[in-house]
Design a protein around this nucleic acid. Structure first.
Lengths: 332, 332
DNA sequence: CTGAAAGCGCTTACAG
DNA sequence: CTGAAAGCGCTTACAG
């Protein structure tokens, strides 16, 4: 049989109330009594039932994270970072993915309604931003990890897309590259506009107006990076560098460039965005704007936990700075 | 105020018992009564509290997964597959990682003791196989997803390492490659022995005894794949093909080969193991033994859920077959 | 077919 | 400093 608070109370000769107090360090209590209770707890190997505590307290000590497919490397990174923070506080992390579309959301909604967790972390909630906002308005603590520039009406953590892209421009300029091909993500995302603007800012500051023809749209996939490079080459575009809006497209593009006989970085210097671990494993290793993915996940989780402890969630987005990692794809 | 079973009972003019019955479809009940109760449930938007149900039933409808860092691509795949299965049954998935070593295990142990979930999925429990076995012996439903050949004393799902490696050998032989360099993982893992044996089997069947000198040890990382290739080249080893015990080492090795002026597949045909999505994004795209990672995750999750429903967990490992994916790294 | 009542294992005013 | 008692919101024998 599993030991309960009652067993401990009986054995220690105190009330359950007292045991509960030493467990939670609440209320003044005679240090000797506490000592005795602790001894019994150890002796019996007593651990409070998570179910009973959750029920009695009305909170679960569990936070949920809603994200698209975990099969994307970016997701593993944020999740990992958030899990670590949450675990440190003894909380559990419940994960939900949206790979099944509406069906996923229906299932997720059931857990929300059942109040199966105390707070929520969200990543890339394409199409359900309104639903999430509604949950937030209904009182569920929510923090969005906003890598797509959604700028929602509820708490979020994001990064400096514009400044990051500016750094990419400055780096390429410092290498004398004045005709960069830009491989963008889907323009409907706010971050794409920011990255384009920041990049243009950098060139404009050096007196270079970017040629709109040197812009190809991708969709963040490897294949779209390849396709973008193919289109640019077939169109006979002339470029001495390439700035892709994520690492993966940069990698796809580099493969195409190499097969076309172009050398990276000699003929084309390449810069990515994200700086995931795989960036270092490209050939050549990829220079990239470093997005603080882990910090974003950890910060969002910390905000949520602080909120449980009584701190209000900041209404303005929390912005974490990008940095810039130089590797062989630009640094010969 | 959130609506409870009491509100529904009152409004429908029945007892809480009856409401509970229509909720759980248990016991015979007048269809008209049930209909009326359902109407009230809809009207009030009633959803049973997950906390209260878990407490009353003594089970949580949550399964946990313990895995090493989520930052490894393999992990995202298994997790994703398991999450989908679990979500389909309305269960939640709690994730724990072991990136913090003993501290992680201590925290995880606290959740186990608190009976915070009904069953456990484990991946690569290096060093804590005994602890997990102990949990299993104490009655916690556990399934190991065994990609490392641990062959534990409790339920597990694994794949055909030996047969997979055999297929790699046959493929290389069909290409006329008789001097394969083998880049292994750490030999302490059972799967490595099996992959070596299966590969040797294939060659032996063709009358070729593999040269033990043509074996270099790696540790499953990209860098170790590079290092292995460097060592082989520096040692002046002659090989016309390369079989790496995972994709990532194959990718690392390919980079080194290319920089050494060797062409893949013309000079060296390369085969990996795992066939993660990234294999298709190598240059050239990587031929690989396909490990059924997703099926392994899904199967393990299904076994656990079936066990909750009363099915016994199989005592022998459940073995899922590998397949073989041919791409340009061997198929010029 | 339906309900009253006990029970799941804690926490938390309230009283002393 | 400590305890008796109510309460959290369900499920489940048991009785009818």
């Amino acid at each position: 049989m599993t030991v309960t608070i009652r067993d401990v109370a009986l054995r220690a000769g105190v009330s359950k109330t007292t045991v509960s107090r030493v467990l939670n360090g609440r209320g003044e209590l005679d240090e000797r009594t506490a000592e005795r209770v602790r001894a019994v707890i150890d002796e019996l190997g007593y651990v409070p039932s998570a179910r009973a505590v959750a029920f009695a307290r009305g909170s679960t000590r569990v936070v949920a994270m809603l994200l698209p497919s975990l099969a994307w490397p970016w997701m593993g990174e944020v999740l990992q970072a958030a899990v670590e923070v949450v675990e440190d506080e003894g909380y559990g992390m419940l994960v939900f993915t949206t790979t099944q579309g509406d069906e996923s959301m229906r299932r997720f909604g059931a857990h929300v309604s059942a109040r199966a967790f105390d707070g929520l972390l969200v990543v890339e909630p394409e199409g359900q931003l309104d639903y999430i906002a509604q949950l937030h308005d209904q009182g569920l603590p929510v923090v969005l990890i906003d890598d797509r520039g959604h700028e929602p009406r509820f708490p979020s953590v994001t990064t400096t897309n514009r400044v990051g892209a500016l750094a990419a421009a400055q780096h390429l300029l410092s290498l004398g590259r004045r005709r960069p091909l830009v491989v963008t993500g889907e323009p409907r995302f706010g971050c794409i506009g920011e990255r384009l603007a920041g990049f243009a800012d950098g060139y404009r500051a050096a007196g270079v107006e970017l040629d709109p023809a040197l812009r190809v749209e991708g969709d963040f996939t490897y294949e779209s990076g390849q396709a973008a490079a193919v289109r640019a080459l077939e169109a006979g575009l002339e470029f001495d560098s390439l700035f892709a809006h994520n690492d993966v497209m940069a990698a796809g593009a580099m493969t195409v460039l190499r097969h076309a006989g172009l050398r990276v970085p000699d003929d084309v210097a390449v810069v990515g965005f994200d700086d995931l671990p795989a960036a270092a494993q490209c050939d050549p290793p990829l220079t990239a704007v470093h997005q603080p993915i882990r910090e974003m996940g950890a910060t969002a989780a910390r905000m949520l936990l602080a909120n449980f402890a009584g701190d209000p969630l900041p209404s303005a987005p929390t912005v974490l700075p990008t940095s810039f990692t130089v590797r062989a794809s630009t640094a010969g």
